[in-house]
Nucleic acid binder design. Structure first.
Lengths: 111, 111
DNA sequence: GCGTGGTACTGTGCCTAGCGGAGTACTACG
DNA sequence: CGTAGTACTCCGCTAGGCACAGTACCACGC
């Protein structure tokens, strides 16, 4: 199966979630996402998402020069971004519940 | 948030899951999916998915004339389809776990 | 001092697949 | 006969993830 399609509409959330945890720059976000289990996110996807989120006002950014490579463009989640993350998370869990139900996975436990 | 993007790559599974439960025709599948909570699946999406799955050999079909409307094209899940559903479900639950983790939803009983 | 390799970002164009909308056909009902 | 529900098809649009290529900066080895 192609995991790539699953990411659609969710990568935003993943990125926001990672950044809200701690300000981060693109390259690092990619690493963190991959570590988290999203093994095959493309870097271009993340950068693209970052740009979109930034333009949407969900992220702010500041550049930090690095002494071991090119400068890093750090991103931080804005209040609007937090809001979006909250909403998205809600949408996601509803959606995932429905899917789990449909697929009959034992994932979702009562509680 | 746009639920529509979330469906990407998952509608196949949802459709398979519904059909595996009981042979069904397009119009009915749409209804069942909507009832299940996927309120805004477009009918065109479902029909498209159906065609794709059929062509991929995951579904077989047979036409049943109806006396209260046009004929119905019923679909049934093939062994290959069952296999695909199993795989897809696995991929899904892994994916959903990762996402839940990232988003810190209390959905999963990971604790 | 030059190539190689890791880090960090940008841009372009492709492709998948879900969606809206229009169109067709059949039945039933007023 | 027109409208409405059922059932399906076709077409063009769009979002967004991806591959690929390119740029730039640093460090290391030769």
């Amino acid at each position: 199966m192609d995991t790539s399609q699953l990411l659609k509409g969710v990568l935003d959330l993943a990125v926001l979630a990672v950044v809200v945890d701690e300000d981060a720059y693109g390259y690092d976000i990619v690493r963190r996402l991959r570590d988290a289990g999203l093994d095959d996110v493309g870097d271009a996807s993340v950068y693209g998402t970052l740009r979109r989120l930034f333009q949407a006002g969900a992220l702010s950014s500041y550049v930090v020069p690095s002494d071991e490579g090119p400068h890093r463009k750090y991103y931080a989640v804005t209040p609007a971004g937090r809001e979006a993350l909250r909403n998205g998370t809600k949408t996601w869990s509803h959606f995932a519940d429905v899917l789990d139900d449909l697929l009959g996975t034992g994932r979702k436990d009562a509680a």
